[in-house]
Structures are given as structure tokens and as C-alpha cells.
Design a protein around this nucleic acid. Structure first.
Lengths: 186, 186
DNA sequence: TCACATTGTTCTATTTGACGAACATGAGGG
DNA sequence: CCCTCATGTTCGTCAAATAGAACAATGTGA
């Protein structure tokens, strides 16, 4: 969700310089490989101008980097969240506890949650935003989950993935069940 | 890793149209909100031209969508990998087994692995590509891990994250230890 | 020390993307 | 039926991004 009204020119400039130095080639050489004028590249690395898609794409191909590398600020020792700690998101049902472990970068969300689930009630999840995909791996316990008419039963170490933009359910089959949930908002 | 030498104009065109219809506003209205000429937007939705960063960014802000939504083709039932199944990646050390559960989209990698680790030997990981970040959640067992001089001990449900582009270690403290590893290549 | 290569920056010429108006088209409303 | 407002497209004009050459600055070899 970009809120800054101005394009991230500084980010692009920094990223270009950094990636070029990583490959270990000169500005001139990169311009040659990308098929653009070196004056253009010089200005871009200075954070000036308003580059066109064509120019930036050519640079991404030459550097062999994803496009998002240019527009996203770099992300960033050990951070630990102990089981039971962390920002909790309690469900409206008391038998469901979620912890947000890490949020994906703005432009490529893959949020990771640790979910504890107690048996007895079925957790019906409302459909999320379109194109959401869910991935989950069971830690301990047993559970049943999946889209409305495609439930699967999972045990420790089992992995499942399904569309998150359709109605789906989670249900613990044992006490002390927890799983890692990755919400991919592509 | 873009390999197509030409910028993904068709992808951008389709994404713009789709997102605009999702919001339910006219081409004219979107152009007004984004502060660009409607002729410009018309051409973009037709897949013509070579848009500048400024123009595209303004549209992203107006549509409140991540930039990558424009340059990445859309991605997408239940897919299950049972514990023990799936494509295995054996380590050079016999006490280490990894399973790739899901690979991130090209432009925003967050690969998810299920790793089984037996105690006894220390798994020294070579540094990955720059800006790699690792996230992990322990399923069962106990382990010690982290960057060379910042080891932490984790149990079931514990979560840790650290830079993957510096030397780091994994070590199981109990038999039957497995954990979910998310490799984020930002 | 001089010649030459390579670095990245600055200048001018030209191409081209963005703007704004004029345009065709269709849907209501009086 | 005509008028009006909305849609989205096409057409000149102008500003700006790109290309290409000329430029300082730094290194490297004979």
C-alpha cells in the first residue's frame, strides 16, 4: 500500500548502485549490457529523473534481479518470539489464538502466524481478499482444515495449501494443537 | 528474475483494468484521482506506450495497491504434502533433511521449507545471497540456532528470525526435532 | 613521464511520453 | 426527440527522458 505520493526514486537509486556493486561491474558496463545510455544510468543512480518502465526493466534483466528489488526499501540480528509471547490476535471464538510472527513487505505480503487451536468448535474463516493463498504446517496435535467441501486431516509436520479467498474451516482434533499459518496476499 | 527482455506492458494493462473495475470507478475518475491525464490511462490500459515511474506510482497510490501487483502476473484447491513426503533436499550431512513446501513468486521470494534435524552434529549454513532473512518456528523437539555468535535455544512453538546472509548454525537438541523454515529473499 | 584505457559526470540533440482539448459513443431525463 | 452528462478514444502540443558525444578524473603500462 504505497501512501507516499512521490515515486521512490531514492530507493531505486540506492538499489541500483548496490546491486551493480554486488555484481562488480562498472556503470559503463551495466549500461552497455542493459542497452541504455550510460548518462541515463548515471542520472538514475543519482536519484534524478523519472525513469520509464522500459529503462528499469532492462536494468533488472541485466542485473538479474526482481523488479520489486528496485521499489522496495531493504528489509532488515536474532529476533525471538517465545511460544505464548508476541502480539496475540484472539478470535471471536475463545478456542482460537493467533500470533503474528512476521508481516510480509508491503509489496509482496506473506504474513506468518502461529495459531493455537483447541478442539470442539469449528473455526469458520470468512473469505479474505482475492488471490489470498494460505499455507499451513502442523506443529503438534491433529487438525482438519481446508475449503468448505475439501477438508483434509493433518498431523505433525503435514503441510497443506489452499485458496484463502473462498470459505474455509479449521478444526482441532486434539488438545494442544498448533500450526504455522502463512497468509500469502500475492 | 525477469528474463523477458521487454517490459510486461500487457500484464500492467490487465492489472490496471482489473483493479480499476474492482474498485468500481471509471477510467476518467481514476485518472482524476491519480492526477494524470485520462488519455494517458487509456493508452496504458490498451497496453501501449512506455509508462514512467511517476505515472505508475500515482496509479498505485490511487488504487491503493502494491507496486508489484502491476508487474507480476496473478498467481493460484487443497494441496497437501504429508510429513515425510514431498521433494526432499538432503544435506551433505546425513542428519539434516529439508522439504520444499512452497516457493515464493519470482519477484518476492518467501520459500517455505520443512526441516527435520537430528541431534549430534552442528549444521553450519553457508551465507545465502545478500538480504536473505530466515524465519523459523519449531514444531516438535528443541534446537539451538542463529547467527554465529548469537545462538538462541528454541522449543515447540518458538519463533526466531535472523539474517541469512551471515554465517549461522542449526543444531537439534532432541531427537525428532522438526521446524518450519521460511527463507525470505526480499 | 607520457600515452592510453577506464572510470563517471555533464552537455546537447532527438525521440517520446504526458497533457489537455476535441472527438465519437451511449444512457437517461425532460 | 433533443439535450445533457457520462463514458472512453484520438489528436496536436510541449516538456522531459533518453541517446550519444565530449568531458574531467583516476589508473595502468611501457
Amino acid at each position: 500500500m504505497p501512501s507516499d505520493p512521490s515515486p521512490p526514486l531514492a530507493t531505486i537509486a540506492a538499489a541500483l548502485r548496490q546491486e551493480r556493486q554486488r555484481v562488480g561491474i562498472s556503470l559503463t558496463e551495466l549500461a552497455r549490457r542493459a542497452g541504455i545510455a550510460k548518462s541515463t544510468l548515471s542520472q538514475l543512480e543519482a536519484g534524478l529523473g523519472n525513469p520509464s518502465m522500459e529503462t528499469l526493466w532492462a536494468l533488472c534483466v541485466a542485473l538479474d534481479i526482481p523488479f520489486s528489488r528496485l521499489v522496495e526499501p531493504p528489509a532488515n540480528s536474532v529476533r525471538v518470539i517465545r511460544a505464548g509471547d508476541g502480539p496475540r490476535v484472539r478470535s471471536e471464538h475463545a478456542d482460537f489464538t493467533g500470533t503474528l510472527l512476521t508481516a510480509g513487505t508491503a509489496h509482496a505480503r506473506r504474513d506468518v502466524y502461529l495459531i493455537e487451536l483447541e478442539p470442539g468448535r469449528i473455526r469458520n474463516a470468512e473469505p479474505h481478499t482475492p488471490r489470498t493463498v494460505e499455507h499451513l504446517v502442523v506443529g503438534t496435535g491433529r487438525m482438519r482444515c481446508g475449503p468448505e467441501h475439501e477438508q483434509v486431516e493433518l498431523g505433525p509436520g503435514d503441510y497443506a495449501t489452499f485458496a484463502g479467498d473462498a470459505p474455509h474451516r479449521y478444526e482441532a482434533l486434539e488438545s494442544g494443537t498448533f500450526f504455522v499459518l502463512i497468509m500469502e496476499h500475492s
